[in-house]
Design a protein around this nucleic acid. Sequence first.
DNA 1: ACCGGGATGTTCT
DNA 2: GAACATCCCGGTG
Length: 195
Amino acid sequence: MARRCRLPRSFYERDPRLVAPELLGKVLVRGGVTARIVEVEAYCGSEDPGSHAYRGMTKRNATMFGPAGRLYVYFTYGMHWCANAVCGDEGQGVAVLLRAAEPLSGLDEMRARRPKAQRDRDLLRGPARLCQAFGLDGAFDGIDLPTASTGVTIADDGTPPPEHPAVGARIGLSTGADLPWRWCVPEDPHLSRPA
DNA sequence: ACCGGGATGTTCT
DNA sequence: GAACATCCCGGTG
């Protein structure tokens, strides 16, 4: 296996629609718990009616407007957390939502945090399930992914992104649902929904 | 397999 | 007061 390195800040400092497909195949890391990202969505700030940032900065979405490379973790539906990587330039409010991943290591810890998951392929199949399995919640909002000391990061282990990713509409939106800003590893069994 | 509804509480109108 | 970047369970076929 090739050596794993944290993605540098410059990776994130671009349009989320460029960053998103390149995140496919990268490795989400929290200590010994790791997983390969297979599904993501781009959220594009003031030009995107589906984005939390569409109506400007609020207390909840403030992290989105900060520097690229931070983790934006938000609470939704009264019980779930979801995690994004902030992209672009500071003040833009753009990010990539991490929607699904393939478990690589730390499976026992994931299973312990998600006792309801029947099969290992269900551990990270969906943005809130992914956060549950990794133990990500509001305490992780704003942490800096490129910084070594945080323990949470996204790394490159040499696996290239798919040459022809599946692209389609984002999931769960009432507005902005027509925009094709969801990217997946084609045919991957760990997707939240087929591509 | 697919579908419908309930859980649960923060955020914004 | 409504909406919400979701998940889980229990129905039916």
